[in-house]
Amino acid sequence: MSFIPLWPASISGYSHQVDLLVVCFTVLIVALSAPVFILIVVFAARYRRGRAANRKHPVNRNVVAEVSWSAIPFLALIGFYVWSTELFAGLHRPPTGELEIDVVAKQWMWKFQHPEGQAEIDELHVPTGQPVKLTMASQDVIHSLFIPALRIKQDVVPGRYTGLWFTADKPGTYRLACSQYCGTNHSEMIGSFVAMKPADYAKWLSQSSNDPSLAAEGAALFRGRGCSGCHGPASTVHAPSLVGLYGKPVPLQSGEVVVADDEYLRDSILLPQSQIVAGYPSIMPTFQNVLSEEDTLKIVAYIKSLRPGEATQ
């Protein structure tokens, strides 16, 4: 873009709420600060030559006015704090039935992987009107995915997953970028965010690639790396079952109980000794520095796809 717009496009319900918050907070700040600066100018002009003050009687005090100009701004700011906190917390409460897209950040590019298998570099296609959840990982340093039209930004940190969700309402092509300095070519780590009508998105999916789904690629890696030798139904090794594991509580040898979310599955693959399941021996080898973040995301997608009645192969 050859210019910076005064007010970027707003294409989601969340972005409209953020805009409203910014406008209302700006109005509050102006309302609180403008009288001070106006009175400074008025008093400076009116009393520029000085005036004798009558000090015979104490100044009358209006307690109600003095309390009001402290209490009202305080309560207003508390209201803005609650409002902004609720908006922030909403970013981490995705609705059910969302479209899950995996993101890998690396110097200096964004790679997006759709569950159907389509992969994109520096371009993200999504359907309008449907919640989209991004599960993000970094291959090297800290990055930060920023989509101005959605008013959202999330750091992508090496060594763990971070997440973000949104619902785009207006079709079009918008800008995305890395907002965290990540090295020499940081300014070139930009791309396009393409919101499409559901029918157009389905057509794009059917035409963009014939690659296997993310879960299917993960299944191939699962077998190729020997994971099925321990976690398969015919295995003689005493290893936890992965069928229906995702989202369920997992008791650990330490006495803790954790939820088998994306982060837990990733750590179990790359750092298997960090959280050992109760009742199982600590024999799983680490795949850290063996699997890339992309391959790990594929295996996680495969494990998430396993449902009761299905068996690991």
Results as ranks from 00 to 15, higher is better:
Ser2Thr: 10
Ile4Arg: 14
Ile4Thr: 15
Leu6Trp: 09
Ala9Gly: 04
Ser10Val: 03
Ile11Asp: 01
Ser12Phe: 00
Ser15Asp: 09
Ser15Pro: 04
Ser15Arg: 04
Leu20Ile: 10
Leu21Gln: 12
Val22Ile: 09
Cys24Leu: 15
Val30Lys: 10
Leu32Ala: 05
Ile38Thr: 01
Leu39Asp: 05
Val41Trp: 05
Val41Asn: 06
Phe43Met: 08
Phe43Cys: 09
Ala45Gln: 04
Asn54Gly: 12
Arg55Ala: 07
Lys56Met: 13
Lys56Leu: 13
Lys56Val: 12
His57Asn: 06
Pro58Asp: 00
Val59Asp: 02
Val59Glu: 04
Val59Arg: 06
Asn60Cys: 05
Arg61Cys: 11
Ser70Gln: 06
Ala76Asn: 02
Leu77Asp: 04
Leu77Val: 01
Tyr81Met: 12
Leu87Ile: 07
Phe88Ser: 12
Ala89His: 13
Leu91Gln: 03
Leu91Val: 02
His92Ala: 07
Pro94Arg: 08
Pro95Ala: 05
Thr96Tyr: 09
Gly97Gln: 02
Leu99Trp: 13
Ile101Arg: 05
Val103Asp: 00
Ala105Leu: 05
Ala105Thr: 08
Met109Asn: 11
Trp110Cys: 03
Trp110Gly: 04
Phe112Met: 00
Gln113Ala: 13
Gln113Met: 15
Pro115Asn: 07
Glu116Ile: 08
Gln118Val: 14
Ala119Gly: 10
Asp122His: 07
Asp122Gln: 02
His125Ser: 01
Lys133Gly: 10
Ser138Thr: 10
Gln139Pro: 09
Gln139Phe: 10
Val141Asn: 11
Ile142Gln: 11
Ser144Lys: 07
Leu145Gly: 03
Leu145Asn: 08
Ala149Gly: 01
Gln154Pro: 00
Pro158Phe: 15
Arg160Met: 03
Leu164Trp: 02
Phe166Gly: 02
Phe166Val: 07
Thr167Gln: 14
Thr167Glu: 14
Thr167Pro: 08
Ala168Cys: 01
Asp169Gly: 00
Asp169Pro: 00
Arg175Asp: 13
Ser179Met: 01
Ser179Glu: 04
Asn185Glu: 09
His186Ile: 07
His186Leu: 06
Ser187His: 10
Ser187Ile: 08
Ser192Gly: 06
Ser192Thr: 11
Met196Gly: 03
Lys197Met: 11
Ala199Gln: 13
Leu205Gln: 03
Gln207Tyr: 06
Asn210Cys: 02
Asp211Thr: 10
Ala216Phe: 06
Glu217Ala: 12
Glu217Leu: 13
Ala219Phe: 02
Ala219Leu: 06
Ala219Cys: 06
Cys227Gln: 14
Ser228Arg: 13
Ala234Phe: 15
Val237Glu: 13
Pro240Met: 12
Pro240Ser: 10
Ser241Asp: 14
Leu245Trp: 08
Gly247Ser: 08
Pro249Gly: 09
Leu252Thr: 12
Ser254Pro: 05
Gly255Asp: 05
Glu256Leu: 11
Val257Pro: 13
Val259Ala: 13
Asp262Asn: 12
Tyr264Ile: 06
Ile269Tyr: 07
Pro272His: 05
Gln275Lys: 15
Val277Gly: 05
Gly279Gln: 12
Thr286Met: 00
Phe287Cys: 03
Thr296Glu: 11
Leu297Tyr: 07
Ala301Gln: 07
Tyr302Leu: 11
Lys304Gly: 04
Ser305Lys: 12
Leu306Ser: 11
Leu306Gln: 11
Arg307Leu: 14
Ala311Asn: 15
Ala311Thr: 15
Ala311Glu: 15
